[in-house]
Design a protein around this nucleic acid. Sequence first.
DNA 1: GTGAAAGCGCTAACAA
DNA 2: TTGTTAGCGCTTTCAC
Lengths: 357, 357
Amino acid sequence: MAARMKDIAVDLGLSVVTVSKALRDHPDIGEATRRRVLERATELGYQPNLTARSLVTGQSWTIGLIVPDLLHPFFAGIAKAISGDIRPHGYGLLISSSDEDAEVERQQIRHLLARQVDVIVLASTQATADGLRDMAEQRTPHILLDRRFADADAHFVGNDDEAVGALATRHLIAQGCRRIAHLRGPAVSTAAGRLAGYRQALAEHGLPPAPGHVADLGPSGDHRGEEAGYAAARRLLAMSPRPDGLFCYNDPSALGAMRAVLEMGLSIPGDIAIIGCGNLSYADFLRIPLSSIDQGAKAIGQRVADLAVSLAGTRNLVGRNLVGGNLPDRNLPAPCHVDFIPPRLVARASTLRFNEE
Amino acid sequence: MAARMKDIAVDLGLSVVTVSKALRDHPDIGEATRRRVLERATELGYQPNLTARSLVTGQSWTIGLIVPDLLHPFFAGIAKAISGDIRPHGYGLLISSSDEDAEVERQQIRHLLARQVDVIVLASTQATADGLRDMAEQRTPHILLDRRFADADAHFVGNDDEAVGALATRHLIAQGCRRIAHLRGPAVSTAAGRLAGYRQALAEHGLPPAPGHVADLGPSGDHRGEEAGYAAARRLLAMSPRPDGLFCYNDPSALGAMRAVLEMGLSIPGDIAIIGCGNLSYADFLRIPLSSIDQGAKAIGQRVADLAVSLAGTRNLVGRNLVGGNLPDRNLPAPCHVDFIPPRLVARASTLRFNEE
DNA sequence: GTGAAAGCGCTAACAA
DNA sequence: TTGTTAGCGCTTTCAC
């Protein structure tokens, strides 16, 4: 079994307290003693039991992360960045995939709370902010990732999805598209935001919003995006006059749309220009390199990590012994931090109609 | 703050032990008492403090996972599968990326041990099995993932990389290739295994192994595979006679190789057939759909999860109080489990020379 | 500078 | 069926 402080203490004829202080560089320990302790600790390969430490300090040095799909490169990129950036601060990352299932997500939140994580980072699948209540009651700081709630003021890091939608749509307009359609994503804030941005860009340029130009990918728009994109694009292409530009909720649905277009013998971008969102890794190597909006997953992860680390110390430990009040008062410890990472347009062959780079 | 057992006990005029037993469906608790406890627990939104429970039971209900790169779809897929499959058993997953850095990996192992994880799952970047020592000393079961060590008999789940290499190479041979080259990966067991399989398949068919036909991707073969593949392929294509088939360590390097081939005005698969490994998600949508070996990431994750859960109960808690021996004896609790997930060939246009599907 | 006492929230053994 | 005692490994007062 692992060595304990007690083992070191007995070996050296010291008390556990002295060992504890020596190992944590407490000021009031003699230089000689400290060295002896450190030496013996190294010999034994001593590692402090973080579980025990957590129990007494109330800090677990763990950050919880819940994402809808860990295989999605956007969330995988964020997870990687968070993991790397909290590591030097001594934090560990407890990750779970909710599989886009609101019930699983709620269960995972409770699970993370039971584990006493210091902060929860959540890309929520829920329709409402109700699921945040458990965290608020436990006074566990939480950060919303990518997806927001209109009615909750919580910390948020992600894109301004209106900006995403406007950026993509303006690009299509600049490429000469005039009948621009949109493949709309599932019922989360990102889809609503991108749709709003799309409408705003059309309005700016005096382009009439044709109602049929917004096709819904349905609830499977995220994990089965390619199929959903194919089906939705076929519906759009049957219209007359045919759209000449298409802004897709994400890259997989854009790939599906491309397949539909090519199958009909139409050309991209000549007949219809297509842009996605997410900037998937090998977009350059596709049959037709896909223009996309890069969401800056790495930057998002870094900002989340910074915020999480700063919040982790915050957890309010007072109040327990004062009164028997079980329901906490809701004073939020700090003002909410809302951090929009600017999206970036990556134009490739699927939209470039004028041979400009 | 969160409710504790004590709160429930006081409210109901019971002892903490009774509450504890009631909440865990211990047999010797009266039905009426149990119901009262459960009811009050629900009212208070009680969640057991798993940190405290861990301290006393010695089980943390946590599994640690260390991968070289969480953004790599292979590892992301495994992580997702593990996470999903251990969840119903009540386990959480503590994940970290080692960034292909052996020192970071060793540090993360110590970190996970300090957190008392029940099992460590490791896709190791180390050159030797030395890094496994800490886990053995703490008697923490561990599972090697994807990458093995010749000198260590540890639990392993992954592909039989010789089979991977042979499968890919035999496919090229079947497509009529006779001068088959290989882009060799970095210094881990997967690369060595795939190379061996490549050689074996050549030998089976009496094809002479030309030494110049094995080009090294260098140490960056995993995270900067595309560039490395491009550079290595250019070297190969300068040979005379030119190779007519190419088995690449992974898909990114295959994309790089494709770029090199196309830049030279050669055709794929006419002049040279190319196959990768990993079966990246959108291989079908590439300029030339890429043949690849699917490693079965999901299946690997599932097997890891099963094994991890079965191992998690194993951790030997005896021996502590018997004698003062700090160094454990090395009796391994169970025979090592080696689980090869069969790789699967996915043939696409980049190798299909005979118009067969 | 060092250590004794107390306790974090929970569970395991044993007593009542 | 319920409660008492003890202790998991560590940190935090507060004496000495």
